[in-house]
């Protein structure tokens, strides 16, 4: 067991973990952050995407010990710290508005990857959006409405001063 201190969605956690514990399993099983899910075991699907120190990573391909001393943001930490009535992040809102999800299993990872894309490129073209989320698989939507959602969020974010995770 190794001791780690991690900030997740704005709160500090101190835990003992086995070195082999994946970050996603730590989040889900030790912290109860079940909003982040596991969809594959080869780092292809992106369903487990979270932000590590502000950058999108696949939490199934990061060890929990590697998050020691770092800051993790999950889908649950986006909307004003996760309070039920908190305002949605513009990307969350856009996914809703543009029908960018159906079963919703890929959605947390898709949203976290999209935010990362927009942080880096605030006004991406359709091609840049498609390539920017190539690491996230969705089986329901055919991606078209996800692309629309990212476009809409880009518009809203560029019109506002901040609000990004």
């Amino acid at each position: 067991m190794t001791s780690i201190n991690v900030r997740v969605d704005g709160a500090s956690y101190s835990d003992d973990v086995e070195p082999r514990t994946l970050l996603v399993h730590y989040l889900r099983e030790q912290l109860g952050k079940v909003g982040t899910v596991v969809g594959c075991d080869t780092s292809n699907c992106g369903a487990c995407t979270v932000h590590l120190d502000g950058q999108a990573v696949k939490s199934c391909t990061v060890l929990a010990v590697q998050a020691d001393g770092r800051e993790v943001t999950t889908i649950e930490g986006l909307a004003g710290g996760g309070a039920p009535d908190a305002a949605l992040h513009p990307v969350q809102k856009a996914f809703h508005e543009m029908h960018g999800l159906q079963c919703g299993f890929c959605t947390p990872g898709m949203i976290m990857a999209s935010i990362d894309l927009l942080n880096e490129n605030p006004s991406p073209s359709e091609t840049e959006i498609r390539e920017g989320i190539e690491g996230n698989l969705c089986r329901c939507t055919g991606y078209q409405n996800i692309v629309r959602a990212v476009q809409q969020a880009a518009g809203e974010l560029s019109g506002s001063a901040g609000g990004q995770a």
């Binding site: 079940v34 909003g35 982040t36 999800l101």
Partner: peptide, 21 residues
């Protein structure tokens, strides 16, 4: 109509079977 289902799915407040403890 925008979907009622989305509220929980876009915020991670979901009840996938594997979430069950």
């Amino acid at each position: 109509r925008r979907r009622k289902e989305d509220a929980r799915l876009i915020t991670g407040r979901t009840t996938w079977t594997d979430n069950m403890v």
